[in-house]
Write a protein that binds this DNA or RNA. Structure first.
Lengths: 184, 184
DNA sequence: TATTGTTATACTCTATAACTATA
DNA sequence: TATAGTTATAGAGTATAACAATA
């Protein structure tokens, strides 16, 4: 995220500047036989749009002292039965190694937002459970979070939302497909 | 990126597991008045698709020893006249603070991929210039990079590409719009 | 005074390897 | 042997503040 004191340029970027720069991208790429502007344009838009959306929501989360990952942990717990989850499963759902989950859980536990206890049937596993404090924090944040999402997205028509979801999903599947074929 | 030795789960995630978890997201959200699944679904797809795409291309870049940011610097230089650019402009184009550009430029200069020289008319500014070694590295990578993009995206029809670009662009503009209104 | 780049610091996120304790 | 979690380490990436040189 660009620091606050240098953000003036962003206003320029979204209008003229970005088109100007993307023109350069297109002209530079034209030197390569396999360069295909419509494809590149899709990827550029994916990256920039993700960036803008992430920054928007990350900024809101940071106001309640949560990083996107920390928020993600709380949401996963909240959605699970008994509001608890094995660290192993957290690791798999968040596509992050177990080693990194340890640190993340540590910091959330230190703040009293979650608790950690050994599983009774398999003493290797740790069960992470939402604490009252974490629950309250989520309950305080989620209504405005969902409202904000809805407010921004409401400028897309239902048909546009549906199309965008379908196309993103299709695009993602194309990458997955490549990975699968790479490991026969 | 998930470490190699734990990647087996990813195959599961793409098919059944993701739908299962997203069902939980939808049902959990239903408790909130402003929760609007189609909107949330768009954002989830944006985030996951970005993640998959980034990992795909980042892995290819890491094979020639470049991080996405480092690659970005080289591309920006390559597209500029004289293959050079002020650090100030790099900072603005990459939406990153000047302090961070210093380190990024340092590491690329140390590897001999770029060079840094003071501007002759304004001695405050540093001009970063592509070095022969950096140029060769890009020339070696770009053909297959563009080919790979085209190959994957070729599974979208021209109409789908056009629609996806337009919708992502529109979605991004909605976030920008919010930001603008936030600073009247 | 404002701008450019630098230094210093810190925090988040991630990857890897080696270790332990269980199973 | 395989799995769950931990520790230790390293490297990106980013945010912030304070500073020097220059305009």
């Amino acid at each position: 995220m660009l620091p606050a004191f240098e953000r003036g340029f962003m206003d320029t970027l979204q209008d003229g500047k970005m088109r100007y720069y993307w023109d350069r991208v297109r002209h530079h790429g034209a030197r390569y036989a396999k360069f295909h502007w419509p494809s590149v344009e899709v990827i550029l838009n994916l990256v920039y749009t993700y960036d803008v959306a992430l920054n928007h929501f990350a900024k809101r989360m940071s106001k309640i002292g949560l990083s996107p990952s920390a928020f993600n942990v709380l949401m996963i717990l909240s959605r699970h039965d008994e509001k608890s989850c094995k660290q192993r499963d957290l690791s798999k759902l968040m596509l992050v190694s177990r080693a990194n989950i340890t640190g993340l859980v540590d910091s959330l536990a230190k703040r009293g937002l979650i608790s950690r206890a050994p599983d009774k049937t398999d003493r290797r596993v740790c069960i992470v459970r939402m604490a009252k404090k974490g629950e309250r924090l989520l309950e305080q944040f989620l209504p405005s979070h969902y409202e904000e999402m809805r407010r921004i997205l409401s400028n897309l028509t239902p048909a546009e939302e549906k199309t965008l979801t379908a196309l993103l999903s299709k695009l993602r599947s194309l990458f997955w497909q490549q990975k699968k074929e790479g490991r026969p």
